[in-house]
Structures are given as structure tokens and as C-alpha cells.
């Protein structure tokens, strides 16, 4: 799929180029995290180094570039390794949610009838509960842990893919070129794999690319609420959670501890923004009519 045409489209569109630059930047940070911020605890790289046990955060300094947060956890280390964790969470959750949605939605559309009814009512049930609330319930039930949080996020993310895939398959199934392929003698599997899926899957791919950012955002919310990463973990949500007591600053100095929020908050903001812009670019690129 990657060819000159696609690259040219990304280069010529400034916003999508911007999105690509952001995502590539984060990707490099994630890849080179051990270089950028050497691991201090070899057993758990995501464990934030703690400089001392002093409570109040310290502003950026030569030693701690982004400053330290509550209990002297290093923000720079947290943001760098948090990037790696964000990719891990975003990609894993989106991948599995996409896969489950594709299987459920595909089965519903392909078999139809009762199978369709049962599978779609099931997705409706998941849809009926606000996703963040449901994710909180599942994460709380499974216990606060990054892995459990990813399971909870996957459990609430798949229904939108199932619905999207089902709808797109049903609509593509009716198109003339599918009938045309059948009249040429093509049978079920060929029609499904060569004509229906390639034309039905792209809207979901676009949603998935937009979702990576959103999943990371939701993961941060869960961590903030104490349902994901534990205190001391290099997780953006957790870093913001640790800033909770310092956000308002001191009396008369509302921005006294600004750095506790700006570094992890900015990272989340840029990460989500990057994926959103890139998702928009994907949407344009995957439409074959725009050459």
C-alpha cells in the first residue's frame, strides 16, 4: 500500500505532515528511551527513579530537565518511558479491539439472521454503558494493573469496530461490483476477501488510527483515577495523578508547580493530536478516488 502516491499526499498536506512528524517523533522517543533516559532500575524500566523523599515538587533544573513531581519522581524519565508505554497501550488495545470487532462484525454481516441479531445486541449492551464507566468497572474488578487496564480498554473499544465493520460489509455486499464478481463465477471466499473486505475495512482502519490517541487518553484517565498504572510508574496518566495536589499551586501563586502538569499533559496532548491528524490523512489517502 505504501507507494509514491501516498507519500506525496502526506508531504503535500501540511496538517497531515505535521501529524506524521509528531507521531514519528514520539516513535523515536519510544524506541530510543533507554538512550534518552538510562534505566536506573534494571528489573522494571517503567519504575520512575526517585531522587529523594521530599514531598514538594522541584522545578526544572540541569539535573532534572522537566523538574520533579511529588516525592521527587523525575518527570523527564516519566515522559520518555511513558511514551513507550503509551505506544504499547495504544497499539495493543487498538489492535485487539480491531481484531475482535472485525471478527464479530464480519461474522454478523456474513452469516446474518440470528447470528447477526445475537452479536449485534451484545455490542449494543456494551455500547449502552458509557465506555469510561464500563472500563472503570472492569479495571476495578480485575485489580489496578496496566495489563488489566488494557483488557478493560479493549473490552469497551471493540463494539464500535464491530458495528462499523458490519455496516460497511453489508453496504459493500449490495454493490454492483460484488454482484458482478459473482456473475463472473467467483465464490464466497473470493468475493469476501478480494472485494468485500478491502472495500469495507478502510473506514475501520481510519477509526483505528484515530483511536490510538483516544485509547491513550482513556488509559491516562484510568491511571489518574488509580485504576491503571501504580504510583511511581512512568505513565503519563499516573504522572498527572501525582500532580493532583499541586495543580492549584500555592495561595497567591496559582502556577507555582506548573511543570508537574505541563510535561505529562503536553505529551498526552501532542500524542493524541498527532494520531488525530494522521488519522485524517489516512482517511484521505485510503480513498482511491483521491489520487
Amino acid at each position: 500500500m505504501i507507494n509514491d502516491r501516498i507519500l506525496k499526499r502526506i508531504y503535500t498536506n501540511k496538517t497531515s505532515l505535521f501529524g506524521l512528524v509528531i507521531v514519528v517523533f514520539f516513535l523515536l522517543v519510544a524506541l530510543f528511551a533507554p538512550v534518552l533516559a538510562p534505566v536506573e532500575n534494571p528489573n522494571n524500566a517503567y519504575q520512575l527513579p526517585q531522587k529523594s523523599y521530599q514531598i514538594a515538587p522541584q522545578p526544572p533544573s540541569a539535573e532534572n530537565w522537566f523538574g520533579t513531581t511529588e516525592q521527587q519522581y523525575d518527570l523527564y524519565y516519566g515522559v520518555v518511558w511513558g511514551t513507550r508505554l503509551a505506544f504499547k497501550i495504544g497499539l495493543t488495545v487498538t489492535f485487539f479491539a480491531f481484531l475482535i470487532g472485525l471478527l464479530v462484525g464480519g461474522a454478523a454481516a456474513y452469516f446474518g439472521g440470528k447470528t447477526d441479531e445475537i452479536l449485534m445486541r451484545l455490542t449494543d449492551v456494551v455500547f449502552a454503558v458509557p465506555s469510561l464507566v464500563l472500563a472503570m468497572v472492569i479495571a476495578a474488578m480485575l485489580g489496578p494493573d496496566i495489563k488489566n487496564m488494557m483488557i478493560a480498554l479493549t473490552a469497551v473499544a471493540w463494539p464500535s469496530y464491530a458495528r462499523l465493520v458490519r455496516g460497511d460489509i453489508l453496504s459493500v455486499k449490495q454493490r454492483d461490483y460484488v454482484t458482478a464478481a459473482r456473475t463472473l463465477g467467483a465464490r464466497g471466499p473470493r468475493v469476501l476477501l478480494r472485494h468485500i473486505l478491502p472495500n469495507a475495512i478502510y473506514p475501520s482502519v481510519v477509526v483505528a488510527s484515530l483511536d490510538i490517541g483516544y485509547v491513550v487518553l482513556t488509559a491516562a484517565s484510568l491511571s489518574f483515577l488509580g485504576l491503571g498504572a501504580q504510583p511511581g510508574t512512568a505513565d503519563w496518566g499516573q504522572l498527572i495523578a501525582m500532580a493532583r495536589n499541586w495543580v492549584l499551586g500555592t495561595p497567591g501563586h496559582p502556577f507555582a508547580y506548573w511543570y508537574t502538569v505541563v510535561a505529562p499533559g503536553g505529551a498526552i496532548f501532542m500524542f493524541v493530536l498527532g494520531w488525530n491528524l494522521l488519522g485524517d490523512a489516512f482517511r484521505d489517502i485510503l480513498d482511491p478516488r483521491q489520487a
Binding site: 454492483d176 461490483y177 454482484t179 458482478a180 472485494h195 478491502p198 472495500n199 478516488r289
Partner: peptide, 12 residues
């Protein structure tokens, strides 16, 4: 040969 040549060819 179908009526609508716009919809009877797979765009991909």
C-alpha cells in the same frame, strides 16, 4: 454488462 459502469467496477 451492467447498467451503471460507475458502480459495477471495484474501485480498488
Amino acid at each position: 454488462v451492467y447498467q451503471d459502469p460507475y458502480s459495477s467496477l471495484d474501485p480498488r
